[in-house]
């Protein structure tokens, strides 16, 4: 197996949330010079207490993500990608997106394969819109922090969002298809060079 090279850029992007926390801390110190130790101590105590409660749930979330990742075959998504009319197709593809696990960048090769198979851009955008909305790792966390009702409504809305995204893309679908074809050609010539 090829060992992944450490990329400082990717690492910094991964931890970018830390910079927001640091920025908030600096702002708190500047605005409340007298009481900032209390504010920070209170906030961190609250965060730490929450961490103790959330660790088992977080563990469940990661174990669910690991299992789904191993058992769900990405090729299956490509095989299931069948269009049945515009609205029916967008609806089915959005559902397929919602139930497809994995990070967004793992979906781009799938999208390129689908584009190569002649799937139009409005279906691809509907798929990505649905896919980004839900995930096995996020499920237990969303349940814990936002409750069952919110989760159900958001799951239904994810499908609706996929369909609307597809419909909004329909007028420019051909224009986007042209760009996708160029992109494919580019990635092939890059491969040949390497």
């Amino acid at each position: 197996m090829k060992k992944k090279k450490f990329d400082i850029g990717t690492f910094l992007l991964d931890i970018s949330l830390i910079f927001i926390v640091i920025a908030v801390i600096i702002i708190v110190i500047i605005i409340f010079p007298d009481i900032y130790p209390e504010i920070l101590a209170d906030s961190f105590r609250m965060g730490l207490n929450e961490l103790i409660t959330i660790i088992p749930i977080f563990l469940v979330a990661t174990f669910l993500a690991g299992l789904v990742d191993i058992w769900v075959d990405k090729e299956l998504v490509v095989r299931l990608f069948k269009k049945t009319g515009l609205l029916g197709g967008l609806f089915f593809i959005s559902i397929l997106g919602v139930i497809t696990p994995g990070p967004i960048f793992a979906m781009f090769p799938v999208v390129l394969v689908l584009a190569r198979k002649g799937v139009e851009s409005h279906f691809l955008i509907a798929f990505i819109a649905g896919q980004t909305m839900m995930g096995p790792m996020r499920l237990p966390l969303e349940l814990y922090y936002l409750g069952v009702n919110f989760l159900i409504i958001r799951a239904i809305l994810s499908i609706v969002m996929g369909v609307i995204s597809g419909l909004l893309t329909l007028p420019v679908s051909k224009w986007l298809n042209e760009d996708l074809k160029k992109q494919k050609a580019l990635s092939y010539s890059e491969k040949e060079k390497s």
Binding site: I15, I18, V21, V24, L59, M137
Partner: peptide, 22 residues
């Protein structure tokens, strides 16, 4: 894989909890 995800993700989640506290 799950343990790897847990080890990688937990520090970022701790940061999110700190932000939540703030």
């Amino acid at each position: 894989k799950s343990l790897r995800i847990f080890i990688i993700s937990l520090p970022i989640f701790v940061v999110a909890l700190m932000l939540m506290g703030l």
